[in-house]
């Protein structure tokens, strides 16, 4: 696309998009931010409680798996996620 055509195309396209908003609903700008219905698909997310372990000054008596010899069999929900018709598989991991 040559330069002037590009400029015209972009400007026209943006003007059309902006105009559609102006006519559809004269929302204040701050309401536009994050307005899920406008664009894309908004996914309902986790809440802030999952904000991470962070740094702690405590120790733990939970035991680490290190030293246990075990094999991981397919587990978790990956087995129900369909990948091109195949069930998700984890390979055995040697401890």
């Amino acid at each position: 696309m040559n330069r002037s055509t590009l400029t015209l195309t972009l400007a026209g396209s943006l003007a059309t998009a902006l105009a559609s908003v102006a006519f559809a609903a004269p929302l204040p700008a701050e309401k536009m931010v994050g307005n899920e219905k406008c664009y894309g698909i908004a996914l309902k997310g986790q809440n802030d409680c999952a904000a991470g372990a962070g740094t702690t000054c405590a120790g733990t008596s939970t035991m680490d798996y290190q030293g246990n010899s075990w094999k991981a069999v397919p587990a978790g929900t990956c087995t129900s996620m369909n990948v091109d018709g195949h069930k998700g598989m984890l390979e055995p991991m040697k401890g």
């Binding site: 991470g52 372990a53 587990a75 978790g76 990956c78 984890l90």
Partner: peptide
């Protein structure tokens, strides 16, 4: 190691559910 794996589990809860806790921890 428990501190670090726990920090990862809290940051990657969906990843953990997908593979199961035992695989995730390893």
């Amino acid at each position: 190691f428990v501190g670090l794996t726990k920090a990862l589990a809290q940051r990657f809860p969906v990843t953990e559910r997908l593979v199961g806790t035992q695989f995730f921890v390893a």
